[in-house]
Design a protein around this nucleic acid. Structure first.
Lengths: 266, 266
DNA sequence: CGGGGTTCTCGTCAAGCTGACATCAAAGCC
DNA sequence: GGCTTTGATGTCAGCTTGACGAGAACCCCG
């Protein structure tokens, strides 16, 4: 669907009722990763008004003939410099009133859970994207527009996703250890988990891990068994075949963890 | 926010980049209720093309100067005849490509969990709204547009909501018995629950029920204790004060059930 | 080469929760 | 008054959870 040509008329609505509003639509992405045992979010420094100089989520306007998910991946590729791996799902829609000083704008937010991929032009360009610790920018007002609220919603969505879906593996590389997976949970939830109980739970939960038979080497301590994700997250690049018509609804969870991995209750 | 006057220029986008698409936006509502121990959805029979004569979710185009949630409540009021009670939250956004034969249209879907409220003009008018058992219309193709998929997403959202939030009470009236609440769970999940275990769990979960001290009378069997919802669902009518700026993001869950009420696993 | 430190893996055990089921209580109905 | 219906309370085995001990396998260092 990325290669779909623009339609003949760039502005739709010729057959819709005359009273309907025609709205510009943006796509903003909450891209989360875990680095140095802390949750990070991909942010850009805005180079143009409004909110010039402020930090904001990567995103931009949907172009004519473009789907929502396609717009999200395009903006990520433009502002992060690469087509990042990971799991992408729709987060929610905000607006159109009272969120952009230029006027009514509808914004569809997406959530990306990704391993710590490198950034092209990281921090060098004026509008370059960079990872920021979520804890540093979680207070309202740290980001332009209503992106502080969108980020908070994205973090909360990620936290609950980790409980009931195997998507914690989306933060890891193709092969990882149980300890790496545990540090993902610890960073996203902001808690400390017992390594022994977590290992028992993670390896005993069907649909989460697949043994590779291989082990780590070179690190300190006893070598750890390497695992792969039991489900390949239907992410940005991995779609492969056409997902029917332009698949722009809220992504369905690939698998539900059963029993869930509940976070400790205070 | 309902009374907000339209802005001076009905079509926004004067200051947005020239390449951005201007899209008509519709709001569709998946209104669910429980009647006769079965999950029902509010549907309208379309009176105009496209999909004339087919069943579809109530909804319509967002008007200039109107917020998303306001458009959802307005469409519900127009097509159901009243301002229904219940809990409203955003479900997801679909499109804009390949879902409306008239051209690109963005659709923001909302989910309403409501008690079995009466319908004005129920079934009489050509475009009147009526409750339909979800089981009758869940197969793809039963509804116009992509509403079959939106309904499926809404039902799945409702199912998981019941596990981790006290929103099952949104299906009940102001006072209800544990048995009524259990029938809500049974209808939404499609399972049979043991009344004794359910009662122990429901009354023992903090943040779900509040005793009223009153009891049912007149029915068959021993009178049952009447309860109220511990949290009033922030629904359509109950907002009261202004919810800051036009609150059109995905609604946050009012309270999280802890421990959750997990549905039986297969 | 051997000891200490580190990390991973397996085992143990009490406490709490879940699912299955029995028992009692309180109404209506004949 | 007995029967039926429905709600409330209790019991009990089995499982899961949280806390923690102990051994295994690697690295580093002297």
């Amino acid at each position: 669907m990325d290669a779909m040509p623009p339609p003949s008329r760039p502005v739709a609505g010729a057959e819709v009722p005359p009273g309907a509003a025609l709205l510009p639509v943006t796509v903003d992405v909450v891209a989360l990763t875990v680095r140095d045992d802390a949750l990070h979010v991909l942010l850009v420094e805005r180079g143009v008004e409004p909110f010039r100089g402020a930090l904001a989520l990567p995103g931009g306007f949907v172009l004519p003939g473009e789907g929502l998910a396609a717009a999200a991946t395009r903006e990520l590729a433009e502002e992060a410099g690469i087509a990042p791996p990971g799991y992408l799902e729709q987060l929610g829609t905000y607006g159109p009133l009272g969120r952009d000083p230029r006027g009514p704008v509808l914004s569809v937010a997406y959530l990306l859970l990704a391993p710590d991929f490198g950034l092209v032009r990281a921090g060098s360009d004026a509008a370059g994207a960079a990872w920021h610790p979520v804890a540093d920018v979680l207070d309202p007002g740290a980001l332009g527009f209503d992106h502080g609220r969108i980020l908070a919603d994205g973090v909360e969505r990620a936290r609950s996703k980790l409980e009931y879906s195997p998507l914690a593996t989306a933060f890891c590389g193709p092969e990882f250890t149980v300890a790496e997976l545990r540090r993902v949970y610890e960073a996203v939830w902001g808690v400390r988990l017992d390594p022994r109980n977590f290992s028992r739970k993670a390896t005993g939960t069907p649909g989460l891990l697949v043994e590779t038979g291989r082990f780590t080497s070179g690190g300190a301590g006893r070598p750890a068994a390497l695992y792969r994700a039991a489900v390949r997250a239907p992410g940005i690049q991995g779609v492969g075949g056409s997902a029917a018509t332009g698949d722009d609804g809220p992504a369905s969870v690939p698998v539900v963890l059963d029993p869930p991995l509940l976070r400790p209750r205070s």
